[in-house]
């Protein structure tokens, strides 16, 4: 028995050695290094790195609250988050339709999942030209979808559309695992389609739903709204989200500019991390009962 436990431990350690090493480098070290960088200053002429105190944070604050380039980013980031929640809601309802095996459910599922699996940049090319050239011809309008006030709603719609597949893929699978007997009993008791959804399905899948919501909250400052696909580095600042801004800056930054970006990232983490953890606790506590 003792030998078995020792053999198990050796095998177990061997199995976990690489994953934990990878985690140590690409999660722990990267994030600790990011935090350290936020306190550094890089001298471009000498290549020397020195301690900058909270200097980078002051600069990050200035960018976040004073820079005209980022004046719309707060509103757009928040809007993107709200729209993502709406997209999740839509995904839940579509998944329910699929899990209940309603007419053409499997065919419709393919149509919902397909855009998620296809190349985002190639789909963006098609969608942009369609919006700019085909849409005006089809609906006899002067303006296309990518001009004037239409752009932001169109980008938000595109974001929801492209993201639907992931939630439908996972949620319809989770819903299918709910015992059929529950639904049959509910039907015998006279439960309607939507009553069954609210009284049985939603409470049963609530833990998975919370995971989705928490991922949305956690990604609040990361979402790019597809801006990089459509505009590369040249999006209109009126459309900026912080996710887009951080990615664009990181791509084009010099070594001297890394620390202020790291400081900005640390500030965002400081807001998003407790928010995500608190929301998870709250959502699980307030969740419906499956009884």
């Amino acid at each position: 028995m003792h030998t078995k436990k020792r053999n198990d431990l050796i095998f177990y350690s061997a199995m976990l050695a690489f994953p934990l090493l990878q985690f140590g480098i690409f999660y722990i070290a990267v994030n600790v290094n990011s935090l350290v960088m936020a306190f550094e200053r890089y001298d471009y002429t000498t290549g020397a790195i020195s301690f900058a105190g909270f200097g980078q944070f002051r600069q990050a604050f200035y960018f976040l609250f004073r820079s005209p380039e980022l004046s719309a980013a707060w509103k757009n980031t928040l809007l993107l988050f709200v729209v993502s929640l709406f997209g999740d809601g839509l995904g839940v309802l579509f998944s329910y339709y699929i899990a209940k095996e309603k007419p053409l459910a499997n065919l419709l599922k393919i149509g919902i999942v397909l855009p998620t699996l296809l190349s985002a940049i190639a789909m963006a090319v098609l969608f942009k030209y369609f919006g700019e050239r085909a849409f005006p011809a089809l609906f006899h309008t002067e303006e296309g979808l990518f001009s004037g006030n239409a752009v932001l709603p169109v980008l938000l719609f595109y974001h929801v559309w492209m993201g639907l597949g992931t939630s439908v893929l996972v949620l319809s699978g989770t819903m299918s695992a709910i015992p059929k007997s529950l639904s049959e009993e509910a039907e015998l008791d006279g439960c309607t389609f939507m009553k069954e959804f609210f009284c049985i399905t939603l409470p049963m899948i609530y833990p998975t739903l919370v995971t989705f919501l928490v991922i949305d909250i956690a990604g609040i400052f990361v979402g790019q709204m597809g801006l990089y696909h459509f505009y590369a580095d040249d999006a209109d600042p009126a459309l900026f989200t912080f996710g887009y801004y951080l990615f664009r800056e990181a791509r084009n930054a010099t070594l001297a500019e890394y620390p202020v970006l790291a400081a900005m990232g640390a500030l965002f983490t400081l807001v998003a991390a407790p928010l995500a953890l608190f929301s998870k606790k709250l959502l699980l506590r307030l969740g419906p009962s499956a009884d």
Binding site: N31, S34, F221, V222, A262, A266, A273
Partner: peptide, 8 residues
């Protein structure tokens, strides 16, 4: 969420 770790 760990935001902005790309430079690092």
């Amino acid at each position: 969420p760990i935001v902005g770790a790309l430079p690092s």
